[in-house]
Design a protein around this nucleic acid. Structure first.
Lengths: 354, 354
DNA sequence: CAGGCTCCTGACAACGTTGTCGGGCGCAAG
DNA sequence: CTTGCGCCCGACAACGTTGTCAGGAGCCTG
């Protein structure tokens, strides 16, 4: 029956139908339409059918936000996600995992990319709060998240991913950064390396600090002093990493192995090694897997994170809170996995310590 | 003066303040608060200051959706983005570019990942429509987008990215798929290849069809018949691509070059070549650049798309419509760029045609 | 046949905000 | 002194929906 509305090509601007319009067409009260749309009980089958038909004829779409205004739970069925950078493959994977869970719960995801800019974090939280998202999943970029307390107190749960928050106690899902870094370094040590360089991201980023801590701890456990000349921090893109790696590798007493503590840094380091023709001589282990690492020569040994699991766990914690879970904040640590492919198994020259 | 509200640790659930609360605290009418919050004129400096202070004290955040309900333009300052897959690096780059433009305009982005599932496209559009996004940027997945007509007619502009829509006339920003594919094939022809394989994505995806068209056209222009045995469609992940490439390469009369028409397919193909030890013997050109393509041996020659430009142009077209531009629908084609790195410059054995 | 229960339905207020409008005040001009 | 105008300001309705409530119809029970 659904009468196809006049289908002439010159599409004209039309008013968007409301429940009122549907009610009029179906010859019922507006509240009855509301009941049918929301699947509430106590509407006769005949009425239900008439309302359904009218809604379909008008291509009616309910206004979720208008409903929330009055609805008891006030839920917008939207959650806010703050990601370090949409273009970072790790973050993209986390995003996808979160969205998958969100869809299961009938939620949409408002995502904002921070590009590791502290000001962007504030801007994005404000933008999301004004849109009344039901919950936040945040990758902390600022060095203090206490400003989020007020949102939690007002009933908007918060889960942090990838990095622990500061200034607020809240659920948080992170990679085992220290252990993963120790694994990487231990692996290199087991191939006889004693001069292992560390290439780290900006030290204000928590994961960068933790990975450095793992590096230092594992060296200490092996009785090796950290050579400050082999530790470079503050790298955030591959070009800088290439330059720094070249400098280290051309030192009078260069490292025999490199632990690069982040994706882009690893890529920059590989480029430097290839440029100097050292990719088969100097060992390399990266933190965070490089997607095509198995296609390079040598293939890249890496400490892989599990972004899918991290995203899923974070989303599940958030929905648990939305379902009323009030258990105390806890930190979930997701272990890493060392993927052995070749670049990390190049033995130290001579095999003995310096 | 901003009195720091009682900072005891046991954070208690609090009511979210409204304009009413701010008005009461500032001792003014609610409409005056509205004026101050929205920067409307004709409020005395003293009153403005009192309202500002009250709003800050209460940590008031306006409810954007409640405002839209009444606001003349009814703008939610949110736009909906449907992306083929959040995990696809190309799509992620497009997403980022769009978000950058959106932020400039004070907009937030509601993104949904479709995973190339036609049903997901419908679901996502409905979810976004109910949230009253001001505009759609859609990567078409279904074979018909006419269902979006009604949203456009009701004043929600639509721009398509990456793939042209069907069943509706609307702005659209796409890669020069045919020309790019022809460039790739011409490049291989110039190195003497006559048996060039084509590895394509699912044929229901428009870009896959267009790239195949480019392949066929360029071969025809060179007077070469397409050997059906060398054309494989329907590949959508790297594992399948690897299997298919292996099969082709072990044919009695194998191809001397491969044109892989998508990112993941290229990766799968490289893996097959390496497994068979043919990576320096069989030429390869990929459509869509592989991020670490320069680190492989041989480095990968690719037809690079420009996701940044595509995303930016799409967002700008959308905002132009939101600003009242009513010019007719147009298709913007973004050219590709052939990046020569090595894998595509392996000459055909013998150098002569079959 | 009265009373009570269940089912179905719609009038109305309310959600938090903005548009409209009109009133009060101060000041300049007639 | 009156008039008129511009600036501030708040009461009120309205946006599209849902919660509350009360009323009517139908049925069963005693």
């Amino acid at each position: 029956m659904t009468s196809v509305s006049d289908d002439s090509s010159p599409s004209v601007r039309q008013r968007r139908p409301t429940m009122r319009d549907v009610a009029r067409l179906a010859g019922v009260g507006i509240k009855t339409v509301s009941r049918v749309i929301n699947g509430e009980p106590n509407v006769s089958p005949g009425t239900t059918e008439r309302v359904r038909r009218a809604a379909a004829d008008l291509l009616y779409e309910p206004d979720l936000h208008a409903g929330n205004l009055r609805r008891a739970d006030g839920r917008s069925r939207t959650l806010g996600l703050l990601v370090s950078s949409v273009a970072n493959p790790f973050a993209a994977q986390v995003h996808r995992a979160i969205e998958r869970v969100a869809i299961e719960y009938g939620y949409a995801v408002l995502a904002a990319s921070l590009e590791d800019d502290p000001a962007a974090e504030l801007r994005a939280v404000t933008a999301l709060a004004r849109r009344r998202v039901d919950g936040f999943i945040v990758t902390p970029v600022r060095d203090d998240q206490s400003y989020l307390r007020v949102h939690v107190d007002r009933g908007t749960p918060l889960v942090c991913v990838d990095r622990a928050p500061r200034g607020i106690e809240t659920d948080c899902v992170v990679t085992a950064n220290v252990d993963g870094a120790r694994d990487a370094v231990r692996h290199l040590l087991s191939f006889g390396h004693r001069r292992i360089a560390f290439l780290g991201d900006l030290d204000r980023i928590e994961t960068a600090r933790l990975r450095r801590e793992g590096y230092v701890t594992e060296l200490a456990a092996a009785g090796i002093d950290v050579d400050p000349a082999l530790v470079v921090l503050g790298l955030h893109d591959d070009a800088t990493a290439t330059a720094v790696a070249r400098r280290l590798l051309t030192l009078p007493d260069p490292p025999t192995a490199i632990f690069s503590s982040q994706n882009l840094i690893t890529i920059g380091t590989i480029r430097a090694l290839q440029q100097l023709g050292l990719e088969h001589k100097v060992a390399l282990v990266g933190f965070d897997d490089v997607e095509t690492g198995d296609l390079m020569k040598p293939a890249i040994t890496a400490v892989a994170q599990d972004p899918d699991r991290i995203g899923r766990l974070a989303a599940e914690r958030l929905f648990a809170h939305l379902d009323g879970d009030t258990s105390p904040a806890r930190q979930v640590v997701v272990p890493t996995r060392l993927i052995v492919r070749g670049s990390g198994e190049i033995p130290a020259p001579g095999g003995a310590a310096h």
